[in-house]
């Protein structure tokens, strides 16, 4: 193997991408607007909340110049609701991701293709009761960096652990329903979970594909011949009628 790293992203890379997510901060000091590659940041004036990228918010938090407002889904009530949905209401499916903030209509628009981290799914006005794409890593990072801003951090940490366990078990049971070349819905699965499960699931799929390859080829061949075969039977019928 030329590359020491497996295909896909490592957890550290996923966490790095997650730092692009926007979070809401309550500044403690004034800070003028900065021109970043992703656009200018809003000027910070102490009592007013402002959206900032996670990495900048973490920096300011470390310097005690801002507090981070945890997203609504990272509250105890919201996480308990999601956990209940995962375990009791639909024990086989993943809970649904947050709804797309720009309603998708029949008329295509530029916002249709926006996906995390370009959607603000973790700011203070994000919907609660849904796990966004970067839930696992964002939750871990926030609990680590600003557990004083999160209410009931220990309870939230336990709930996140529980959710992770439940969803990992689901991820593993996916392989039981896989068919060779089958399609599995991964709606609602987070970035970190994809990164963790990718190698194994791809390996299982590949093995099934190899075992089924000869059968697949056989079916293809039969389908191609199928057209002429039908024609023959029709001919036979015709002959029967003739007689």
């Amino acid at each position: 193997m030329a590359l020491p790293l497996p295909p896909g992203l490592t957890p550290a890379e996923v966490a790095f991408l997650c730092e692009m997510e926007m979070v809401t901060v309550v500044p403690r000091q004034q800070l003028k607007s900065h021109d970043l590659l992703g656009g200018p940041t809003p000027a910070l004036r102490p009592p007013h909340r402002a959206p900032l990228p996670l990495w900048l918010a973490l920096l300011l938090k470390r310097q005690r110049r801002a507090n981070i407002v945890p997203p609504p889904w990272l509250l105890r009530s919201s996480l308990e609701r999601i956990l209940k949905e995962e375990t009791e209401i639909s024990p086989t499916a993943f809970s649904r991701p947050p709804p797309h903030p720009h309603a998708i209509s029949a008329i295509p628009s530029a916002t249709d293709h926006k996906s995390p981290p370009f959607l603000a799914s973790s700011t203070a006005d994000a919907p609660s009761g849904h796990l966004p794409y970067h839930w696992l890593e964002l939750g871990e990072i926030l609990l680590q960096a600003c557990s004083d801003d999160v209410s009931e951090p220990d309870k939230v940490r336990t709930l996140l652990r529980d959710l992770r366990e439940v969803r990992m078990a689901k991820m593993r049971s996916i392989t039981k329903h896989l068919e060779g070349g089958g399609v599995v819905s991964l709606e609602g699965v987070g970035a970190m979970e994809v990164a963790e499960g990718r190698q194994f699931v791809v390996g299982v799929m590949d093995g099934l594909r190899k075992l089924g390859a000869s059968r697949e080829a056989e079916r293809r061949r039969r389908e191609e011949e199928g057209g002429s075969g039908d024609g023959n039977s029709e001919d036979d019928d015709m002959e029967m009628e003739m007689e």
Binding site: P6, A15, E196, F200
Partner: peptide, 24 residues
């Protein structure tokens, strides 16, 4: 065995990352 290794490596990488987050 390849499958075992793949799964073991990715869950280990995950645990390593979580440990690093804790260290800060």
């Amino acid at each position: 065995r390849g499958l075992f290794r793949a799964q073991h490596d990715s869950s280990k990488a995950m645990r390593v990352w979580m440990g690093e987050v804790k260290k800060g």
